[in-house]
Design a protein around this nucleic acid. Structure first.
Lengths: 210, 210
DNA sequence: TAGATTGTTAATCGATTAACAATC
DNA sequence: TAGATTGTTAATCGATTAACAATC
């Protein structure tokens, strides 16, 4: 139904709009104009209207946007209502931190299970989510198709586990390992969260000025 | 010494070059051409040469680039040799995961201390780094000026702690809280790591196709 | 030398901003 | 109605790619 491919720049801004609209909604705000939103987010009203126009007409001349309605539309666009599911690969520090602190459900994902090799972890539950041995990964995914794998395994096994996820039919991998995955990602989306890259960019920026 | 402001797009690519050059160096590769690098990273040779030319002339006609030398130059550009320092704010799951798994030193940062309010954590060490009570933050920063604060505190106190960091003179904040910080950031750089935004972008991309 | 590859200038492409008719 | 604000078209700006002289 989409007119044409929406640029990555637009997609990356949508979650920010969503976040701000959620805050406004919780604060009881009912309507807002593109210029008010632009003011809050430090961007032009033009850009916001241009971005939204990729997906439809959500506003009303002379009025602006209904906060809750627009929030719902963006949630829909982002696929938050699709019943996506996730499994965590690697229940080490980072994996557990995500399981215990990150609210997958707030992004529309149900976290189904975690996998690890550590006997001390396998069989336990973390935040109500069972941790299985990674040997059972394929069997589990066959019985419970999941949308994405959250990759928090050590570097050395990252590509191996990623390949297994792809082979088992996940649609995406949320990659927290600091390497470039080399999977034959025919249609599988890789979303990288490269901490080190982020810190180095910050390093550049604090070094530059002075 | 820089010709003019370097675009954010360029800066965000430098860590990726650095990472790849490190891998090549460890693999014993001595030289490479912009086209070979472009091939590996899935980008044009033009872009790589254009990017590097923002900072100087690091190659040699007919030869290409010396891997280790270029790696060193990029490290320098990114400020990895500046002796930057960091403190962690909030030694909860995520804070500890970073302290235990993330190699700050590999990005040129020395991790000096962590701060928390939990009596069970204060006084302990995590990966050899002492955890202090956040009440002593200002005193500590006065005695040990640090470059950045790593913000892994709960949402509710994020802005308060961020303001204290800014007041105490940090140059940057590496923000892991899922909110837009509202600090009077006169010259203080905020680098956001928004997990939820990243996951929502992934959600969009896996929802889109099919 | 001849082949290869750089750094840089020019051309293209895409993204952002401005302007405005449509209309609530 | 008059004022406000949208969605969209046109103009501008910036980033990417292509081309090529310089030269190792």
């Amino acid at each position: 139904m989409r007119k044409q491919k929406v640029s990555s720049a637009v997609i990356r801004r949508l979650p920010r709009y969503y976040r701000h609209l959620t805050d406004l909604h919780l604060a009881g705000v009912e309507r807002l104009s593109s210029s008010a939103l632009g003011m809050s987010l430090g961007m032009t009203a033009s850009q916001i209207r241009q971005d939204l126009s990729c997906f439809g007409e959500f506003g009303q001349q002379g009025y602006g946007y209904n906060v809750d309605k627009l929030r719902g539309e963006i949630s829909e666009i982002l696929g938050m209502g699709k019943g996506h599911t996730a499994v965590v690969l690697g229940a080490g520090n980072l994996g557990r931190a995500l399981m215990e602190n990150f609210h997958f459900d707030r992004s529309g994902f149900e976290l189904c299970a975690a996998f690890d090799v550590d006997p001390a972890l396998v069989g336990r539950q973390v935040s109500g989510v069972p941790v299985y041995h990674v040997d059972g990964l394929e069997k589990f995914l066959e019985e419970h198709p999941v949308s994405i794998g959250v990759l928090t395994v050590p570097r050395g096994v990252a590509n191996h586990i990623a390949s297994r996820l792809v082979a088992a039919g996940v649609k995406g991998i949320w990659n927290f390992t600091n390497i470039e995955l080399m999977v034959d990602s025919a249609g599988v989306i890789i979303e990288d969260v490269h901490f080190a890259d982020s810190l180095l960019a910050l390093s550049y920026m604090i070094s530059e000025e002075q």
